[in-house]
Amino acid sequence: MLTFTLRRLLLAIPTLLVISLVIFLLVDLAPGSPMSEIPLTVPPDVRQKMIEALGADQPVFVRYFLWLRQFFWVEPAYAFDSWFGTTLAEGEQRILSWQSRSPVFTIIGQRLPQTLIVIGTAYLVGILIALPIGIYSAYRQYSLFDQGGTLFAMIGFSVPTFFSGTLFIIIFAVWLGWFPTKYDTQLEVVDWATFWEQIRQMALPVMTLGLANAAAISRYMRSSMLDNMTMDYVRTARAKGMSERTVVLKHVLRNSLIPVVTVIALGIPSIFGGAIITENLFGVNGIGAALIGAIHASDLPMVQTLAFIFAVLIVLFNLIADILYGLLDPRIRYD
């Protein structure tokens, strides 16, 4: 397993390098200019100066290698410095966002907490809702409960988050006045009151995203349960005279969870990626909102860095999913 993991990690390096170049070229070739958000009242020569000051007029490969160096050397060195007080990165330029002139990693650092808390919670809530629904729907296939679950999943799938989110805002914030609509990123949880405040402000985005997540996962759970429910070994377990509980929870569920766990693991990078629409709608201003904002502003360093980090996470969690599969399913061995 260890050699397998190491081999996969080594293989990932060239893959990721190629991915980084492809992303860079794609982002660079994408239409739009970092100046497109600047009002028309700023004359062209001033725009040109601004572009030069950003280094955006350099040839693409110069910029790519600069980015590579910054990403793989300057930024780690900078992090190392700030932890151990060394001066490795002294005088080196960090990756700067064109839009805000702030270091990209500072922005990511500011945004990661709320993304992880809000989107992560939504994912967790989604899973916690989805699993029981999926399990029971499969166990009582075609029952009223299952039909309800199907309806729920269909709604979760097909209703876009901007719609469900707006609906929740109108119901829970405008009519009922229970929850705020704008997430306060500056809120620090220090006591019960602020903790309650945090729960309240997370409620709407978590509900919106949780619904969407639960829909997908409950379907996976259900179909995986159904696949296993008709397997011979389940009949064997019944024939053994095991109680229904044991049959469902021990035999069927444990086997059904294998693919579901993998799907869940593969979905984790999307937590880091944030949920662009939901974040925007509720002002969570996490990574997703940063990405979309950067794309709109043609903020190449920001888009490039985020996209690359997502690529790394996706590769990583694919590996984790494979390893998990190996751990959960004795039939699979990596040597």
């Binding site: 011979d232 070994y233 009949r235 064997t236 024939a239 005279g241 035999h251 086997n255 959960l328 399913d329």
Partner: peptide
């Protein structure tokens, strides 16, 4: 009562692979 009865009656299945819990 059925569960209690099960020990007296058993079954050997057609597909030995599928009828054993892989985990």
């Amino acid at each position: 009562a059925l569960r209690k009865k099960r020990p007296t009656m058993q079954m050997v299945f057609q597909d030995p692979q599928a009828s054993l819990n892989p985990r």
